[in-house]
Each structure stands twice: as structure tokens, then as C-alpha cells.
Write a protein that binds this DNA or RNA. Structure first.
Length: 721
RNA sequence: GCGCCCUUAGCUCAGUGGUAGAGCGUUUCAUUGACAUUGAAAAGGCCGAAGGUUCGAUCCCUUCAGGGCGCACCA
């Protein structure tokens, strides 16, 4: 320690110490002196390869590393397993955006070249976040890092697909699904978000009835009208055709005309007597609820909007218009022909793509679905029976709500970046479809395919074609669901599965945690972790969400630059009290910087005392000495108890209070007044233990002091609690 | 719409069935002595509102107000 340096210099220490830790090999449990302890394993929630460190990561890394370092000191065999997620849609979007700047689309490049481009991008930027995690002091076992598209990982992904297919849980179907016209893919229910927006509820004349709808432009795909069977106003019409007047799609855009048509009236509980006029126009191709009604009544469907969000040929003169434009025109024409009865201002939830916020366009398409019934039941049971605890408990509600209303998981995506499905189609069958007159939008719409890890040698259907691989890829969450075990060597699997606790954010409880739970049960016969700790979300000081697009984000790296990594970690842990959202307060980080300095200077004082090299004799202790030792023991207990309950804030408050008040302000001052060699020895011993108490939260400064403290050898991170 | 959570000092948050706590901020005093990134002290709160239970409530119950979140196929 440099005697002349009165202030702690985090930059110098951090730059020096992290490489020392890495060089020591202690991050890897196999090199750790305590490699035969009880395994303590944490799976890192996979950052996207598109990612760079944000406050959410910083929060999670701080808490996880605190626990990891604590358990390592306590003598467990600790493994914190890092990795990155290929993040299908997110990454594809980023690279497409980059291409757009060059004036090219992915279609200009073609699939192969585009994927090569994404890989290039991944190689260049995919590891950036790991460097940032190092800056934060994360003590991960980098030697065990995995990427969800590593060859071994890809193999596990493919095997899981084949497994579910053989078990009859995976099937292919033509369904109206949530579709993003911008990302150009179907997405799952969990990737749909709802935004409250102002809209207009149009009341439209349908023969003798009036129907209220927010989407008049889909009327060309109407297959029926639905009323509630208990609705006395309409009950007599159920099962009957009604003649209606509707817009004529022929002719010129300038001359709106009416024509006669017929629609059947069905009785269905989905129709809410109290809403609108109580009548639904059933448009199975463009509304998921309507699709479900259509299934119950065996109706056909007619697609009128295409996968780019444009009106299709069947809409005649409206063909080619974008949805918004078509809506406006259709409303004008309805008004001109007298079919528009009323317009009503209406505030409702609009479904948007969670990736790009584009309004969802429900469309019929061929997709693969994983049957959720049995898997969901098992996933629920795991939490009900306590095999996995969700902490805090009230997040169980989120989990159960999802599992109880769950629909089959749409796992296929019409993207290029991702795990291509191990599905092989008969080319001749596809050719037939292309030549047939039937309107089948997806050329994969034929049943002649094989699900297999390897491409079949001969086509079992036509015996001559080469067979063509499905162009779809898997939902990115399919591969992350396998994270607790995929591509893990057998030797590691024995020790590291199941892991000890998962520390993650609440927005992926269902997207990720739930899916890991049923995948773990399915493939390993055991839940992947006994505890799931859901940490708080960090908000801005005025209570808004931190978001890049709103410009409300705070960059943790800037804070590290300004105050040091320990200070940031301190500030985060200090505020991690309950699980209530945290309104970010930078003064806690400043307090952390001051505290690091306090530690540093206390150590300088102790180093300057003559008697610190020896052990103290308990018999010779004075009352101050005994008291500080007693307070230390209490603080130690408080830290242990708090960390065992994932109460990080409470833990660091206890350590802070002890060190600043009891040790520095009280004991150290008393030691100045009545110096003795026993006191010097106690000063040293208590400092040593304090460093250990604080190391999980402030690893750099404690390590820096430890190295120079008499009576310690090796690194603090490898020491014993 | 249903469900969950929050409301305590100027700010961000702890906390307990029985004189209210921390960090930061504010005020006063101390200064070459580990640290001014300091020490000592002080000011500052009818613990969101109204009822109820209780000998007693900031804490338990009910209702209300404000804020947040989750879920939902109201067209």
C-alpha cells in the first residue's frame, strides 16, 4: 500500500486486480482450493449478443456476484456460468438496420450471405458485454462460457425438437397467429405487448343488424356474425342466413357502391351481450378470437391482408393498400354508401410486437406449436409443491396466471437468424402445391415432411427429390429454455445440475424461467433450480422506466468511470432493499465511493500501528476490544442471515453500519486514546474480517487492502470466511 | 375488467402492536493528528385520507385517493 496516497484510487486498483483474479484461475471451481465443497451454481441470465451493459444488468450482476463471492468465501464449490444468447429477432433486427444504412435489405443479400453477415457482427460485438461484466468485477467462470448457437448447443436444440415431435407434443398447423408485418414473422403470445391507444369504434350496418368494430377493413374476410346464445335480441336468428348490404370491391375507387351478400349468424359465448351491439363480425383470418369462434363452428377462413400488411387481391379495388390506408378508405366508402351508422371514440389495448412496437396483424400461417397442457401442469406443480420457490412469493401469481391460461407455444419463426428447424420437405410435393390453384400462402403447407436430425438419404414420399429443409427457425426462447443443461459436458452436468438459485428480472418469469422449468423436468427429470429470486426493477428518479428509446437510461459504465466499480456496486446493493422497484438515486453511489475511501484510510491507519503483526490474547482484552469483537460477530451474523434470504440491502447496511460506526468512529478512536499491542492486534483482526464481510459487495477495494494487510496470504477472493 | 404491490424526514428508502431510523441534503461547531470523500452535534415526520379492532396502531382489518406492475381474444 502506498503510504502517501491518502485517497483510494479505484481506477488503478480495478485495472490491476481483475487481471490478477483471472490469472489466479480462481473463477473456475476446478482450480479453486475448495473444489470439493458443496456445489453452488448460478446460471447467468443470458445477455443478448446485441446487448451492452445497462442498469438492469448492473443490478443483477451486483447481486449475483455478491452471492457468488460470499458462497466462495464460505467454502462452497462455486460456479457462475456465463453465456450469450443469439437472440433471434433482436439480432436480426439490429443487423438489418445496419444494412439499411448501406441501402440494402436482407433480401438483396440472400439468406446465406445475410447469416454470414450476422455471424460477422456477432464475432465483432457479441463479446463486448463480457468485457463490461469484467469491469463490474463479475467473478464468472469464463472458461465455461457458452453461446446458444455453439455447435454442441445447436445439437441439443435439434434433439429437443425431435424429442418433442416423437413424443407427439410438437405439431404443425395452419392457424391465425400474432404476426409482425415489420419483423415478418409469427410470434408467440408472450412476445405481444398491449398498449392503450385511442381508437374509433365504427358501428356498421349489416343487414338488419349493426355491428361495432375497430377494424372495418377486415370486413372482406367476414365469415359470419356471432351473437351470444342468451342474447334475447338475436337468439331467433342463430343458425340462419341474413342478407346484408356490403361494400362492393369491384369498380373504381372513386365510386363507392354496395352489393348484396349473405352471412350466417352463429351463437357463441365469446360474444359479450353488453359490449357494442352484442354482435361480432367473425373474421377468422385476422383476429385470433374470431379464429377460435370459427373453429367451434367449422367455418372456413378468407385471408384479405398479406404478410406485409397490405390488402390482398380478393379485396378488389382496395388491393395493395396498407392496412391504415385501407381502413380510412373503407370508412369513407361506408359513410358514402350509408352503411356507417355511428363513430364512437374508444380507448382500448392495441397488441404490438414487443421487439419493434409495430401493431400486430393477426394472420393465418403455417406454424409449429408445442402442446403446453402437460408441460404447463408439470411446471405449475413444481412451484406448487415447492420444488422451485419463487422469491418473493407474489411473483408466483404472474407465473400461475400464465400457466393456467396458456395456449400452445408457437415456436417457429419466419426469420433467418436462428436454429433452422430439423424438418425436411418433399420438394415435389411443394412443387405440386405451387402449381395448384389453391390459395396456400405458405409453400410448406403440405404434410409431406420428415422430422429428423439428419437430412434423409431418399425422400420417403416421392423417392427421388433431394428434400428441402424448412426455412423457419426456432423461437429464440426455445434454445434459452435449455440453458441449464444444453452443451454442458457430462462431468459438469453431474455437479452443476440443478443449479442453486436463479437471479433474474421479473419480465422474463414466463418467457424464460417457466420454460426452463418444464424443459428441465422434461429432459433432466428435475427442476433446474430450487430458488428463483426476482430482483427489483430500476426506475429513474422520477419513477419512469429506464429505456434507451426514451433516453431515460443511466449508463452504469459512466458511473464506474466516475466513482469506481465498487462504489457502483455499493450504491446498487444499498438500494436493493425490498423487491419494490428502485427509484435510482446516485447519491448512494457517492456514498459508496466515500465508503471505499473510508476503508482504505482505516487500513492505512491500521498499517501504521506497531502491534498489528501478532494475534491477540483473549485474556488480555479490554472492554472496548471485547465490544468491537462482539459487534463484529453480530454484523457477521446479520450479513449471513440477510444473504441467505437474498436480502442484499440489509446485508450491506449491516456491514456498513458496523464498519463505519462501531469500528471507525468508536473503536478506532478509542484505540487512539488508549493504544496497546492487544488493541493493535484486534484492530488488524477486525479489519481482516470486515474486508471479508464487504468483499462480496466491494471486491476491488477489499482485495487491494487485503494484499497489503499483515497476516494474509493469497487473494481475498480465495480466502476462507 | 380481474389480481398483486406501493404511499414514513426536502430526496431515495429501512423499520416496529407501546418515546420513529439510515444515506444524501440542510444548519452549527471542530481542522494540519487514517480519512474534509472527516469528526461531534442539531434542525426536520399528526408514518397518504377516513373508519374499525385493541388498554394502545405508522404497523392488523375495511373503504377511499394517488402511483406502479402483472394478467385478459370485449369485437
Amino acid at each position: 500500500m502506498n503510504e502517501e496516497k491518502k485517497a483510494y484510487d479505484p481506477k488503478e486498483a480495478e485495472a490491476r486486480i481483475y487481471p490478477e483474479w483471472e490469472k489466479s484461475g480462481l473463477f473456475n471451481p476446478d482450480n479453486h482450493p475448495k473444489k470439493d465443497g458443496k456445489p453452488f451454481v448460478i446460471l447467468m441470465p443470458l445477455p443478448n449478443v446485441t446487448g451492452s451493459l445497462h442498469m438492469g444488468h448492473a443490478f443483477q450482476i451486483t447481486l449475483t456476484d455478491a452471492l457468488i463471492r460470499y458462497r466462495r468465501l464460505k467454502g462452497d464449490t462455486v460456479a457462475w456460468l456465463p453465456g450469450t444468447d443469439h437472440a433471434g429477432i433482436a439480432t436480426q433486427n439490429v443487423v438489418e438496420k445496419e444494412l439499411r444504412k448501406e441501402g440494402v435489405s436482407r433480401f438483396d443479400l440472400g439468406r446465406e450471405a445475410f447469416i454470414a453477415r450476422v455471424w460477422e457482427w456477432k464475432e465483432k460485438y457479441g463479446g463486448i458485454i463480457f468485457g463490461q461484466l469484467r469491469t463490474m468485477g463479475a467473478s464468472c467462470d469464463w472458461s465455461r462460457s457458452r453461446f446458444t448457437m455453439d455447435p454442441a448447443y445447436a445439437e441439443a436444440v435439434m434433439k429437443a425438437f425431435v424429442h418433442y415431435h416423437e413424443k407427439g407434443l410438437l405439431y404443425r398447423a395452419l392457424r391465425t397467429v400474432s404476426w409482425c408485418v415489420r419483423c415478418h414473422t409469427g410470434i408467440s403470445d408472450l412476445e405481444v405487448e398491449h398498449e392503450e391507444k385511442d381508437a374509433v369504434l365504427y358501428h356498421i350496418q349489416y343487414g338488419p343488424f349493426v355491428v361495432a368494430t375497430t377494424r372495418p377493413e377486415t370486413k372482406f374476410g367476414d365469415m359470419a356474425l356471432a351473437v351470444n346464445p342468451r342474447d334475447l335480441r338475436y337468439a331467433d336468428h342463430i343458425g340462419k342466413d341474413v342478407e346484408i348490404e356490403t361494400l362492393d370491391t369491384e369498380g373504381s375507387l372513386d365510386e363507392p357502391r354496395k352489393k348484396k351478400d349473405g352471412l350466417i349468424v352463429v351463437g357463441d359465448e365469446a360474444a359479450d351481450i353488453a359490449f357494442g351491439t352484442g354482435i361480432i363480425k367473425v373474421t377468422p383470418a385476422h383476429d385470433i378470437a374470431d379464429y377460435e369462434i370459427s373453429k367451434r363452428h367449422s367455418m372456413p377462413m378468407l385471408q384479405v391482408i398479406d404478410d406485409r400488411g397490405k390488402m390482398m387481391a380478393v379485396t378488389g379495388k382496395y388491393a395493395g393498400m396498407k392496412v391504415a390506408e385501407a381502413r380510412k378508405k373503407v370508412v369513407d366508402d361506408l359513410r358514402a354508401t350509408g352503411l356507417l351508422v355511428k363513430e364512437e371514440a374508444y380507448r382500448h389495448n392495441v397488441s404490438v410486437c414487443s421487439r419493434c412496437a409495430t401493431p400486430i396483424e393477426p394472420l393465418p400461417s403455417w406454424q409449429w406449436f408445442l402442446k403446453m397442457g402437460e408441460l404447463a401442469r408439470e411446471a405449475k406443480d413444481a412451484v406448487v409443491t415447492g420444488k422451485t420457490r419463487i422469491i418473493p412469493e407474489n411473483f408466483q401469481t404472474t407465473y400461475f396466471a400464465w400457466l393456467e391460461n396458456i395456449r400452445d407455444w408457437c415456436v417457429s419463426r419466419q426469420l433467418w437468424w436462428g436454429h433452422q428447424l430439423p424438418v425436411w420437405f418433399c420438394e415435389n410435393a411443394q412443387e405440386e402445391i405451387r402449381n395448384s390453384k389453391k390459395e396456400i400462402r405458405n409453400p410448406n403447407g403440405d404434410g409431406r415432411y420428415v422430422v429428423a436430425l439428419e437430412k434423409p438419404g431418399t425422400c420417403p414420399f416421392c423417392k427421388k427429390c433431394a428434400m428441402k429443409r424448412s426455412e423457419d427457425v426456432l423461437d429464440t426462447w426455445w434454445s434459452s429454455a435449455l440453458w441449464p443443461f444444453a452443451a454442458m459436458p457430462e462431468k459438469d452436468l453431474e455437479r452443476f445440475y440443478p443449479s442453486s438459485v436463479l437471479i433474474t428480472a421479473r419480465d422474463i418469469i414466463n418467457l424464460w424461467v417457466g420454460r426452463m422449468i418444464f424443459s428441465g423436468l422434461e429432459f433432466k427429470g428435475a427442476v433446474p433450480f430450487p430458488d428463483v429470486f426476482i430482483h427489483a426493477t430500476i426506475l429513474t428518479k422520477d419513477g419512469r422506466r429506464m429505456s434507451k428509446s426514451l433516453g431515460t437510461g443511466i449508463d452504469p459504465l459512466t458511473l464506474v468511470e466516475k466513482y469506481g466499480a465498487d462504489a457502483l456496486r455499493f450504491g446498487i446493493a444499498w438500494q436493493a432493499m425490498g423487491t419494490q422497484d428502485v427509484r435510482w438515486d446516485e447519491t448512494a453511489v457517492m456514498a459508496g465511493k466515500k465508503f471505499a475511501n473510508k476503508l482504505w484510510n482505516a487500513a492505512r491507519f491500521v498499517a501504521g500501528r506497531p502491534g498489528t503483526g501478532t494475534a491477540y490474547d483473549e485474556a488480555k482484552l479490554g472492554s472496548h476490544d471485547a465490544l468491537v469483537l462482539q459487534k463484529l460477530a453480530a454484523a457477521k451474523r446479520a450479513v449471513e442471515e440477510s444473504l441467505d434470504k437474498y436480502e442484499f440491502g440489509q446485508a450491506i447496511h449491516a456491514a456498513y453500519d458496523f464498519f463505519w460506526k462501531e469500528y471507525c468512529d468508536t473503536y478506532l478512536e478509542a484505540a487512539k486514546a488508549e493504544p496497546s499491542s492487544e488493541t493493535d492486534a484486534v484492530l488488524r483482526a477486525v479489519l481482516r474480517d470486515s474486508l471479508m464481510l464487504l468483499h462480496p459487495f466491494m471486491p476491488f477495494v477489499t482485495e487491494a487492502i487485503w494484499t497489503d494487510l499483515p497476516g494474509t496470504d493469497g487473494l481475498l477472493m480465495g480466502a476462507s470466511w
